[in-house]
Write a protein that binds this DNA or RNA. Structure first.
Lengths: 214, 214
DNA sequence: CTGCATCCAGAATGATACTG
DNA sequence: CAGTATCATTCTGGATGCAG
């Protein structure tokens, strides 16, 4: 039950003892977006068995990475301050893994939380600071997000709202961000579908969010 | 055998599919220090079962993270360029885990490679750049290292050589680096044992290598 | 209904023995 | 030295049960 240890005295081995079990980093990823209820975690991590989710939540609590917090009648899980220190690690790991992503397969889901973190990994604050504030509406798989960029600040929320440009992208999302496909080409080929708004803002999106493939 | 996938289309899930299996990140950690033979990896990761090591090496090759390279009669494993891009991830994770380290337990080993990476995570190049070049000899558990700091450059090698100060530290190593114990106190209490050289250089060591506990 | 606990088949790991 | 083969143990995944 407790994470088996590696018998080594080192930072890495301690870290993987704490958060290296299967599913653990994905739980942490979703909690980086915000506190979540048990059921919210379960539906965000569609294929996690419920007993494994319960076990991981206990282990991560014991490790001091997350905690149960009562919020007006319901219980949510949230990162502790120490857990939140994993943010740079998760973002760096996500950036690395993003480069190895191919096109999404049919059985793969995109959740709002995972997409939010992926957007954070690809976000270029220095570039964004030079551009006017913009709100994008993005529909990707099952996730529908409003992405607000204001200076070097990024804010991603779920659901609708007023946006400057709204688009739907399946396989195109990664290609846009990797620079593999220019925005105009993406629209032409139908890989990205602009639903409404100023379609030229897709260029700005591609500038703001960029992660070159390896 | 192949890494089971999480059914999600995201950077993190892809990353943990590639390097999230048990022992994988420790193998990568040691390969970050330099190319290693099968037997070197096996002895650095004392408790890894040999079949698991063999399996991981194959999976990591298939993932494009490492490769087998023939070096004058023998075969070594080394990181691919893509694998080397994990360096910031491993260092960040190591820094996080280091903060959760307690005192070393008896059954825990310290290997030269793991210690080398831990020193890299704690190294402060900006601080080091202000200090004169210094060579430290450190004996920690089974690992005996020569640590050369020259400006903002750090070089850690195994074995002996001329150093400005040599010291042995058991539990003291972490406490020194975390700032939990001042160098003078460490020497007084016998937690750190200066073998020869200028003992006041331990202050410089503690300035150069620092990682505050959480 | 949410938040888990229990049960069981199958997969991964760990220990050890063995081979080219 | 560099792995492969075998087998006991542990963990995961999927289904289901159940208490607040």
């Amino acid at each position: 039950m407790a994470a088996r240890d590696y018998g080594q005295y080192s930072g890495i081995s301690r870290a993987v003892e704490l958060v290296g079990e299967r599913w653990a980093l994905l739980i942490i990823r979703d909690l980086l977006v915000g506190p979540r209820r048990y059921g919210e975690l379960a539906s965000g991590l569609a294929r996690i068995p419920t007993n494994i989710l319960a076990a991981r939540l206990k282990e991560l609590q014991a490790a001091g990475v997350i905690r149960r917090a009562p919020r007006s009648r319901v219980i949510v899980y949230e990162l502790t301050p120490y857990g939140r220190e994993l943010e740079p690690v998760v973002l760096a790991l996500g950036a690395w893994g993003f480069k190895a992503l191919g096109d999404p397969r049919d059985e793969q889901v995109i959740t709002p939380d995972s997409m939010t973190i992926d957007l954070r990994t690809a976000f270029r604050p220095v570039v964004a600071a030079q551009l006017p504030p913009t709100a994008y509406g993005a529909r990707l798989g099952g996730a529908e997000l409003v992405i607000r960029v204001n200076g070097s600040a990024l804010d991603v929320t779920r659901g609708g709202g007023d946006v400057d440009v709204a688009f739907a992208a399946g396989t195109g999302f990664r290609r846009l961000i990797s620079g593999e496909l220019a925005p105009e080409r993406a629209i032409e080929t139908g890989v990205v579908d602009v639903l409404h708004g100023r379609r030229e803002l897709l260029d700005r999106f591609a500038e703001t969010f960029h992660l070159a493939a390896a």
